[in-house]
Design a protein around this nucleic acid. Structure first.
Lengths: 242, 242
DNA sequence: GAGTGGTCTAGACCACTTG
DNA sequence: AAGTGGTCTAGACCACTCT
């Protein structure tokens, strides 16, 4: 019944659900690798690979010689942003209404910063988009995005009002594989005050990111800005490998 | 000459150095897995595991059917903080002088927040430490740490002036294995203004973290605060697995 | 000493890219 | 069609924990 390959990911999903359903309660010892291998009819190596995913996500931890245990779960507030998994606002809030107001939409030549971020020459045109993103009708964040025109073909304002990522994935059939993100606090600028309702003493949180396609080609350079009280950024880090 | 096991980590280190030395230049195709397996006299599986590390760190990317390539490197400013690898200030700045001024050092019973973070009962005593950390003599960050007394035995002020992590690792022989971190911007409080030189309009960046030992037991709950212009937080995210 | 996870091997088949 | 990475297997030995 395996969907051919990738069974280790499916097994990880199943085990994750068991943790979420309390079938494997917090701090409990879960079945040993050999038993799981037998249950799923795979080799022990495949089970180890599945468990590795859940370990790196912070769901499980192991003690060599003792077994594999369920980690005490960390509370994630709904508005918090699990940095390592971010794939767009629409995905972060699937149960809420995410809309966008287009503040700027043009095609320009990239400045030096953008050339370097997107690995482009100066004469390759890029979209230059500023959107105000609203969550359930409330102003939520400002997003300034630059994307190469030749990669993200046929972008138009109707798409910008919904989800760019959805368009990239479903219409263009492109897959993203990685991102580099820089998170920092800043003083609000005029635009932040206007659109996010910041006063002079309200800090903002900015995320500068470069997102790449499967082939490592960067297709998005963006800076998003939120008011300081609109959520936090969560980073889970397990089992460092160096 | 293998140190017994862990050869995949050593191989990853060697390949990482080759990238850093430009022996494998940016965007270049590196030798195929079978060739590397032969070079290092290991199986292809071991090479794949080594490459996985470098892929997740953002140094390499693969294209099935084509090969493994070096990623365009992302610039990390020296003061930036690579979140997934953080193991203390002393480690972040090995070439600088990190000192500490102890502002508070006491043993108390944990409040509810700390009980929950460290998985402790109310009657289990914890250290309550506030330190001002200085980098090359300059005030750099404020750190408020709570640690269970029974885990971090024999802490005293001399250790606090240097590195707690070094003490935990070298004297207590404990190993840390994971962390949960929440990053957020905030307005400065009185303490931030006093010690970090913030004015009313200078945002601060706080990191709330829970750090665990190998067995998953939390041993540190801390909140660190920096002035907004004292570095950023970098998160690299490659090859999401779900 | 028995049991568990960590690592490694040699070989296999598949999915995808490239000439 | 040939070549590359992705995944999987069956089995092995080691390091560590538990008793």
């Amino acid at each position: 019944m395996k969907t051919q390959n990738r069974s280790y990911r499916e097994i990880a999903e199943v085990i994750k659900k068991r943790i979420e359903n309390n079938e494997y309660p917090i701090n409990a010892l879960i079945p040993k690798q050999v038993a799981l291998a037998e249950e799923f009819s795979v080799s022990r190596t495949t089970i180890a690979k599945a468990l590795d995913i859940l370990i790196s996500r912070g769901f499980l931890y192991t003690r060599r010689g003792a077994g594999t245990f369920v980690t005490k779960s960390m509370v994630l507030s709904k508005q918090d942003f699990y940095v390592q998994d971010y794939i767009g606002l629409t995905n972060q809030f699937p149960d809420d209404t995410v809309t966008s107001k287009i503040i700027l939409f043009e095609i320009v030549f990239p400045d030096e910063k953008v050339q370097s971020a997107l690995n482009l020459k100066a004469e390759v045109p890029v979209y230059n988009v500023i959107r105000l993103r609203l969550l359930n009708g409330q102003n939520y964040m400002l997003e300034h995005t630059r994307m190469p025109v030749h990669l993200i073909k046929g972008l138009h304002s109707e798409i910008l009002q919904k989800s760019i990522y959805k368009y990239i994935k479903e219409t263009l059939k492109l897959t993203m594989s990685g991102a580099w993100r820089k998170i920092f606090a800043d003083k609000p600028n005029e635009q932040d005050k206007e659109y996010l309702g910041c006063t002079e003493t309200d800090p903002v949180m900015r995320v500068e990111q470069i997102v790449c396609l499967t082939d490592g080609e960067p297709f998005e350079y963006s800076i998003t800005t939120r008011k300081y009280d609109q959520g936090s950024f969560i980073v889970i880090d397990q089992k460092s490998r160096f």
